[in-house]
Computed example of a mutant assay.
Amino acid sequence: MTEPYTPPKVWTWEVPSGGTFASINRPIAGPTHDKTLPVGEQPLQLYSLATPNGVKVTVMLEELLALGKPAEYDAWLIEISKGDQFGSGFVEVNPNSKIPAMMDHSVTPPQRIFESGSILLYLAEKFGALIPTDLAGRTECLSWLFWQMGSAPYLGGGFGHFYAYAPEKMEYPINRFAMETKRQLDVLDRHLADKDWMAGGEYSIADIAIYAWYGNLVLGRAYNAAEFLDVASYKNVLAWAQKIDARPAVIRGRKVNRNWGQPWEQLPERHSAADLDALPKAP
């Protein structure tokens, strides 16, 4: 840092802090405007965007459908850069105003579910899939799921913010969060040295959750930071991520609630499997 900073005795919010998401960051909760959420015909209503946390859920739903589970869903686009997450309807589903959020209308009264890890666990238990049934396997799976939920803020909110989104590059925070990101990648690389999947013998919600963040990082899709972090050196993580990336349900799930990229990569709203089937083919 070029100038020392002395924190005030009491912090007050005076001006936006700058950076890519400055216009939507604020120190208070609650809605900023009235907006009713749309509701489609499917039992599950997803309100999301294809960020890593959003991709977790769309991949999960597509995996469940691939298994023959009755997990049909409507996926509605929430454009966080425009503040959709602060609409009154969305805040009713998720008082924390973060995507993804879901309503299950197959139960009475309809059940809201927020936080991506909670949604994955809810769907796994509801449909009896993608989570081990034995106590030891389930515990291992949930340990890794909660590890991801606790670790990703260092990757996204820490490293990603200061490396890619902050208004200026600052050596100390970039070094601090790069070190922690590489430590986390090393945790994964060591764990996957003798395992096919995070929970051991079967693909699970732990793999889905961790792939959405760390898989995409080592595959070169996050923050333009693959070379900086030397992600190719984490060979076990890379092989695991490539294996997940090739799954048909993952390929489909990554396209849902996406409104950027090539035409064959994006489906801002999804209301049936036919919507994905109708996308143009990649050349």
Rank of each mutant, 00 (worst) to 15 (best):
G137Y: 00
Q148R: 06
W76M: 08
L121A: 00
D196R: 15
T6L: 09
G30P: 07
V256A: 06
P31V: 12
A209S: 15
Y73S: 07
I244Y: 07
I24R: 11
L49C: 03
G87L: 04
P167V: 13
H191P: 13
L229N: 04
E168D: 04
L155W: 08
E72G: 12
E72T: 11
Q85C: 04
A273C: 10
S88C: 07
L64T: 04
E202Q: 14
S23Y: 00
P263G: 11
D194K: 15
I99K: 02
L61D: 03
T139C: 03
V187F: 15
T51N: 10
P52K: 12
I80R: 09
A239H: 13
V107L: 02
L142M: 08
L37I: 05
T36N: 12
K195I: 09
E140H: 01
A50I: 11
A29W: 02
I119W: 05
Y211D: 02
K82I: 00
W144E: 05
Y73E: 10
G19L: 11
P27F: 00
S116M: 04
V218D: 09
S81Q: 10
D245C: 10
W260P: 06
A71Y: 14
L67H: 09
Q85W: 01
F146N: 06
S23N: 15
P263D: 02
R270F: 04
G19W: 02
P263K: 13
T20E: 05
D196I: 13
